[in-house]
């Protein structure tokens, strides 16, 4: 069984968000890059758990990005991937990213393709669904549980207003979120072996630019907090009722 896990790099969750070059680019000065939390904690770790139950499982990692993704993909290998591919493209259009991943998947024929629920920088929640359409595979989004019995998967997923459990046959694409697995820390053996695991760099296919990021802006700053003394709760209620008009 072959699993493809889609790994993206994102700024560490505590990074200061700023832009440069006339607000056209993210300012990465001093930014620590991490594996997108949903890709690491939920998609990758669940794939590793499946491999621990069945040694036949091969975990292939893929990232679409420039050479600055290599440390992040090495960390994912240290956690437990078997081999990795980096598609050498810095385009951030979801359709382009999905097309690059689908192009690799078409020749490699994976049984299961896992993505995170969304990236914490672009928050598009799009790449997984797009890959599934390009490959004409079923897609189950926002999965919180995934179990496999031969080639039948039982998946619990979030739906509007609750959750449901569904059953379907491999191959498929799923997007993963909290509940799938627990966060892990790479151990020394993993870190050492990651150095010798293959990381292949391939050039991107050409894809029409459906969307382009032009520039960025920051939301208007808050006016500052209005503090009400703890013994004047009625005053807070009055402000919420008459000034903010929210109650």
């Amino acid at each position: 069984m072959k699993i493809l896990v889609c790994i993206s790099k994102t700024p560490d969750t505590t990074s200061r968000i700023a832009f440069k070059d006339n607000n056209t680019k993210f300012d990465d000065a001093g930014v620590q890059w991490i594996i997108n939390p949903y890709d690491e904690w939920y998609a990758l770790v669940r794939a590793i758990e499946l491999k621990e139950k069945d040694a036949q499982v091969i975990i292939h990692l893929i990232t679409v990005g420039g050479p600055d993704c290599d440390p992040v993909i090495r960390k994912a290998l240290a956690l437990g991937g078997d081999l990795a591919t980096r598609v050498n493209s810095t385009d951030s259009d979801s359709f382009n990213i999905a097309s690059q991943i689908a192009a690799v998947a078409k020749t490699e024929k994976y049984d299961l393709i896992m993505t995170g629920k969304e990236t914490i920088d672009f928050n598009s929640s799009s790449v997984g669904a797009m890959i599934s359409e390009l490959l004409e595979y079923p897609f189950v989004s926002l999965a919180t549980k995934f179990d496999l019995n031969n080639d039948i998967a039982t998946i619990t997923r979030e739906i509007e207003g609750g959750e449901e459990t569904v059953e379907l046959k491999l191959p498929m694409v799923i997007s993963c979120q909290k509940g799938m697995a627990e966060q892990r820390i790479p151990n020394m053996r993993g870190i050492m072996s990651a150095r010798t695991k293959p990381l292949n760099v391939v050039e991107p296919i050409s894809v029409a630019a459906t969307t382009e990021y032009l520039n960025f802006s920051m939301p208007p700053a808050k006016a500052g907090v209005k503090l009400v003394p703890a013994d004047q709760v009625a005053e807070l209620v009055r402000l919420l009722h008459e000034e903010a008009k929210v109650i």
Binding site: F95, S124, S126, A129, M130, E133, F139, E160
Partner: peptide
């Protein structure tokens, strides 16, 4: 609306229609 349903289907619809997608 960018809810759980749209996250599941809108990107696929975009690909099928050769349309650009912006979410959020």
């Amino acid at each position: 609306s960018h809810n759980t349903t749209a996250k599941t289907i809108a990107p696929r619809v975009a690909v099928r229609l050769k349309a650009g997608l912006v979410s959020g």
